[in-house]
Every structure is written in C-alpha cells, then in structure tokens.
Design a protein around this nucleic acid. Structure first.
Length: 438
RNA sequence: CGGGCAGUAGCGCAGUCUGGUAGCGCAUCAGUCUGGGGGACUGGGGGUCGUGGGUUCGAAUCCCGCCUGCCCGACCA
C-alpha cells in the first residue's frame, strides 16, 4: 500500500475522549473511529489487524477439529423464550421489532441458537463429539462503555461450542480447547495466563479465564512464574488422546494462577517467593463447561448407546477478537506508539522514502516495494523525514526500511526493528530477506 | 443506574464569570526556502458556537428543557 493513497488518518494529538493508552493509540494510528458510544468503525489498518487475529484464532480452532459456521447477528425472541433467558437477560440485551412487530434481538451470545441448530441435525451419539465455532459481531448494551474497543457495546467474538455424549468426553473437549487457547495467544504475540474462574451455580473446576498481562489491565492477577515460561507451540500433545490431554491439563492447571476475585492468600503463600508474579491483566478469553443446561432447556436430545434419549454435554469457549486488538496494544507499546507483534501487524514493514523525488531514493524504494511478497506500507508522501519516522513508530510496523540519499547511492538502506529500536545498515536484498525471515 | 465533568474549525483548546456578532496552536490549500526524528516564512480557505425554547435592542456568553460524549463507582467478553 502506498501511504499517499491510503486511508490511514493518523493524529498527532490525543483525542480528548480517549483515556487509556490502547484507545488513544488506536485512534491516533488510524485503526478505528468511534461512531457512537461503544461502537466503532474499523479503518483499513485496523481491519487488517482484526483479520490477522481472526485468522490465527481460526487456524487453531480448525487444528483441533472445530468447524466454522456463521450464525446471524439477529435472533428471534422466541428462541430465547424457550431457554427462559429472554426475560432473564435484562436491559443489556438490545431488543428490536421488525415491520410485523415480531420481536428480535441483536445477539449478545449464541448458546440458544447453536444448540437449536445442533439439535435439528444431530440425532445419535455416534455423531458426537462435535465442536462448532463462529466469529461474529455481538452487541451488549453496556451501561457504561469505555476503554475504546476493550469495552465496547458492539464487539467481535469467536465463540465455540462443544457437544459431547458424557461428562468424561466433555472434559476432554474442554482440555483440548485449553491447549488451543494457549497456542492461539502465544501466536498472537502476547502472554496470556489461564486462571481458574468462578463456575457459578454449575460448580466444578472447568472454567478458565485467559488474561493478557498488561499494567493497565482491569483485574489484578497472581500467578506462578512457571506458567509464563512455556512454549505451547512445541507441546507434543496428541489432541485425540484423552490421557495425554489430561496429563497436559494437570500440568498447566497445577501452578497457582488467580485473579484477585479468586485469590487464595494461603495457597499463594505456598508458591516459592521467587516464582510469585503479581500484576494486572485484561481478560481476552473464557472457556467453560456447562453440562446440559441448554440442551435440557431447549429439549435437544439425541439417542444414546443404550437407545435412551440423552442430553448432550456442552462447553462454550470465547475469545474477544476486537478486544484483543486493544489488549495487545496495552501489552505492546512504548511512548512513541504501537509495537505490533509480527503475527498481527497490519503491515509487516514500512518503507520510508526520506527524500521523495530523489531519483536514487525513489528507485530503491520502488524496487523494494515491487519485490515485497506481502503488503508493505510505502511512505511515499512528500513529508519530511521526522514526520515519517514518527508515523511509522506510531503505527508500530515491526520493521522500518529507511531509504535516504546517503545510503541509496551505495545501495544501502537502514533497517530498524521497532520492538528493540535496533538499526543496521544493510543492502536492499538483505533488508528484504531479514524482514521476511523475522 | 448513582456521583462528577464537558460539547466552540478535522484535532487540541481559549473566549462564557462581567452579553456587543468568534480566536489561538496543529492540520489543510498556494507559494518560497528547506530536507535523516512532527522545519521556517508569506498568503488563503474552513464555524448552524450540540440542540430546542426563553430573556434582551443584541446571546457562544444569562435562564429552562432535551441530546451526545467522557470520568469515578456498581456491572461486564
């Protein structure tokens, strides 16, 4: 993308409405614009990030055999009456009427709908287990939206739902999903720690929240350092093997980890002092098992091995995709702007032409731009060098390829790594190779 | 939903107390000089002062209603 032709409106000053750093940076870097309280338009660069996150989430869901569907944003009130939640939900649910005065709602979640869809199609235990997910916009009419996309009213969520024939199988589904989540967040370039969460009336231990560590997080977190040092992408767990998943699950959930609401000071004292980590975190994912609550409420049953009817056991697994863009920025920024992890950055690299109109600089830039196998942002504006440096730092491209008249005549460019600030002078070919390797 | 604050140019703000028909910085446009960390100079454009009503010869300014946004709390992916 050529910056001179792109819709990438950066702001030099902080908009008054934005208080926290991710909100300010998202507005300043031209990722989003607010259109109403808690409702945002995603501009080209922001949309790229949203899609990059969604793609990683998708790949990890697919990897464990979950299948993608897409359910509508609007749902019928009748469906929710069947589960009893239409009246229970309260004013956070946005209720709408169509022209025939039929009652609709903008979905705040999808348990009813997925359960209904499942029940219409699946009739036998032989078809289980199943896991379905979708990535869709939801709406919750929060009393007080804030923190930009981190706590908006309209938000993009990945929701997965598992269906199993019995508790043991449901637990395996749950554990499989936990592994997928650890892998997902690691690939997104952030450290997310799974913490035991309140399971409410259902009880049991099958509810975990995933919190990204960031000093501005809304919850206090306490965890054993052992949790922060593992490479989940290298876990050799066979996700089709329940015993392997159980061993893995026990290993992951044994070290202490809790948000302040669930904090147990006695257990905390048992963690060796040098391994205690305290901080703050942003919740970006939540998985839980809820048994046959919805299959029973909606009377969705299948035939079991013994020929009797059986209510499938369900779990639900959410990831806040739009919230993640904000949360990642909370975890990855400095005083100059965003520092995108490579995996989600809207542009892997920016090419900064420090002297537009200079034949050598123009040639070198065009050569790099043409050779780049993916979308680089070419800053070809007739702006001064300082403006380009500042905007590139603000937008947070992992790499900056700086082309100035000094080096251009030698075929040399300066390659800057945003995360470390490290710069080095390299040939054009090396610059491309290094960016693509990194 | 309780408590607080604010709406004036694209953004950040002054002007409101003490009424006289709107201003500053940045951005933008034209030109000149510049040219490796948000440059300088000259000239220009851009405003239903959130909105409706009232007071007044006259309202951004005073009074009343409404709308919108933000902050703290309760609540929440």
């Amino acid at each position: 993308m050529r910056l001179s032709r792109s819709f990438l409106p950066t702001l030099k000053e902080n908009p008054a409405e934005a208080q926290i750093v991710s909100h300010r940076l998202m507005l300043r870097a031209g990722l989003v614009r607010q259109t109403a309280s808690g409702i945002y338009a995603w501009l080209p660069a922001g949309l790229k990030v949203l899609r990059n996150i969604g793609q990683i989430v998708r790949e990890e869901q697919d990897r464990i055999g979950a299948q993608e569907v897409l359910m509508p944003t609007l749902q019928s009130a009748d469906l929710w009456r069947r589960s009893g939640r239409y009246d229970a939900y309260g004013p956070e649910m946005l209720r709408i009427q169509d022209r025939h005065k039929r009652e609709l709602l903008y979905g705040p979640t999808n348990e009813e709908m997925i359960t209904d869809l499942f029940g219409q199609a699946v009739k036998s235990y032989k078809e289980l287990p199943q896991a379905l997910y979708h990535i869709q916009w939801k709406f919750r009419d929060e009393v007080r939206p804030r923190f930009g996309v981190m706590r908006g009213r309209e938000f993009l969520m990945k929701d997965a739902y598992s269906f199993d024939v019995d508790y043991a199988s449901a637990v395996t589904s749950y554990r499989r999903m936990l592994l997928a989540y650890l892998r997902t967040f690691q690939r997104l370039g952030v450290q997310a720690v799974p913490m035991r969460a309140d399971t409410g009336p259902i009880g049991g231990e099958l509810s975990h929240e995933f919190l990204i560590l960031a000093p501005t997080g809304e919850s206090g977190v306490y965890y054993d350092a052992a949790l922060g040092e593992q490479d989940w992408l290298d876990e050799p767990v066979d996700t089709n093997n329940p015993e392997a998943l159980e061993a893995f699950f026990n290993r992951v959930t044994t070290p202490y980890a809790a948000t302040d609401e669930m904090h147990d000071t006695a257990a905390w004292e048992n963690v060796p002092a040098e391994r205690r980590r305290e901080g703050r975190g942003v919740e970006v994912g939540h998985i839980f098992y809820f048994g046959n609550k919805y299959t029973k409420a909606l009377d969705v049953s299948i035939t079991g091995p013994d020929g009797n009817k059986l209510y499938p056991e369900m779990g639900s697994y959410g990831i806040g995709v739009s919230r993640l863009t904000g949360a990642i920025i909370e975890a990855c920024h400095d005083e100059n702007g965003i520092i995108w992890p490579d995996s989600v950055a809207p542009f892997k690299a920016a090419i900064l032409n420090l002297k537009m109109g200079d034949t050598l600089c123009d040639d070198v830039c065009e050569r790099i731009y043409a050779a780049a196998p993916e979308d680089f942002l070419y800053d070809d504006r007739a702006e001064r060098a300082g403006v380009k440096f500042a905007d590139a730092d603000l937008m947070g491209h992992p790499w900056q390829i700086v082309v100035g008249p000094r080096g251009a005549k030698e075929g040399i460019v300066e390659l800057k790594r945003r995360a470390t600030g490290e710069r080095r002078e390299v040939s054009v070919d090396d610059a491309l190779a290094l960016v693509l390797a990194g």
